[in-house]
Design a binder for these strands. Sequence first.
DNA 1: CGCCCCCTGCTGGCTTTAATCTCAACTG
DNA 2: CAGTTGAGATTAAAGCCAGCAGGGGGCG
Length: 521
Amino acid sequence: MKDMERHLKIHTGDKPHKCEVCGKCFSRKDKLKTHMRCHTGVKPYKCKTCDYAAADSSSLNKHLRIHSDERPFKCQICPYASRNSSQLTVHLRSHTGDAPFQCWLCSAKFKISSDLKRHMRVHSGEKPFKCEFCNVRCTMKGNLKSHIRIKHSGNNFKCPHCDFLGDSKSTLRKHSRLHQSEHPEKCPECSYSCSSKAALRVHERIHCTERPFKCNYCSFDTKQPSNLSKHMKKFHADMLKTEAPERKDTGRQSSRQVTKLDAKKTFHCDICEASFMREDSLRSHKRQHSEYHDSKNSDVTVVQLHLDASKQPAAPLTVGHLQVPLQSSQVSQFSEGRVKIIVGHQVPQTNTIVQAAAAAVNIVPPTLVAQTPEELPGNGRLQILRQVSLIAPPQPSGCPGEAGTLSQPTVLLTTHEQAAGATLQQTLIPTTPAGTQEGTGNQTFIASSGITCSDFEGLNALIQEGTAEVTVVSDGGQSIAVATTAPPIFSSQQELPKQTYSIIHGAAHPALLCPADSIPD
DNA sequence: CGCCCCCTGCTGGCTTTAATCTCAACTG
DNA sequence: CAGTTGAGATTAAAGCCAGCAGGGGGCG
Ligand SMILES: [Zn+2]
Ligand SMILES: [Zn+2]
Ligand SMILES: [Zn+2]
Ligand SMILES: [Zn+2]
Ligand SMILES: [Zn+2]
């Protein structure tokens, strides 16, 4: 009877027990009691084996199975057994092939919801995790962690940009700040500079007549580092005292070896008739085409603009204009490649009113779209210029910003064709005015040609999750310009591993590209 | 009432796997 | 010198699991 009354409260929605601290209401007093422990930190149920403690007995019981290795939930099909029922439920999906969480942008599907959620970041291009020692950014936190372990730990506290050698992680961290917004990698052949060695190597192919690898002991020089070392061994072996490689023979079979078994010459060059055993051989072959034709490989080019959140709070917004890439030696790359621009704002924590900015991309039909779409990844994301950009530039109400532009940030993205007689198309989308209570109510997205509805749905979802960066993906356009009235401070992130480009600011708004550190708080 | 048990949805972290990059060596 | 290849290193992304919070039912 008592139990029935208790049960009926589910249907009436009656929740008489209110938490004094957070205001949350509960239908049952005992639920309120355990809830209170999350405020008080009281955890009466302690594990005798380790220092785990729980606020309720079930959690402890569940935990205890770790120490006893008790796995009561056994799979009927295979030897798998789990410590709790939900894990078994998930496991059973691998027998049935059931994967209920389907990505709406590609064919990927997942057995658990969080994996899908995480997966969606690969579509957004969002890379929230930045290495504090170098310019690497990661989509996944764990990957950044292993990056730091591999690159910046052990006795490996060498600065990637100069000769500095720290004695600990913290000294390297301190030193790394000196390089922020710098372009320490300088091309010896021209005035080009950039922030990563990888980008410099790409650039150097432009100077294809050069032979940058010179022998220190004679006049020999070569284009290829391996040839220099060959030369060194042959003629200056006495100078090379170190090194004794001695490879270990692991039985590891690489995917490339598998490929080799499957078929001969699987990788065909789409420019000439050549075909290759290995994908990376094809890539290196294509570089030959690139050098002759002054057009590089078709890797996605990524330019990421990112706000420095720590500097943001009171920073005045500035009307600005950014143009992305566009050095003459680089432009041609876009004709074969794809461009991805990430514009990021981080919403300052102090600001509760978030005003949405919106953006749209207008598409100039790519002149050189890939002819064989089926070769592209199944999701087709590279074929259409699509999606989206930009978010929620914060508008602190009392901000002493630069003028009335503040109330209506706008974002303009344009693509324009380089060819003669090309048209310049652009779309300018004013955002909704500031001042609404709920940030989420404010977002405006305007579809323009080539942007499908689903893209915006995806964007919306991202935004509602608090994503701070969105992505513009484009194909085949020669250049993309980004202009925005929103951004306070950009620190450019050209150092992404593939090709990288300088961000050239419009002459009218040089302030935009000041190093973040130089802007007063 | 107050405790126990169980379930679900979600988060965050560690582990594993597969793809890709890079280097070095070798060849014609 | 371009093309190949082997193999280790690194990175990107998926797999998996413990924990937390909320919520429902059983029962002394
Ligand atoms: Zn509370
Ligand atoms: Zn324990
Ligand atoms: Zn099984
Ligand atoms: Zn997907
Ligand atoms: Zn790093």
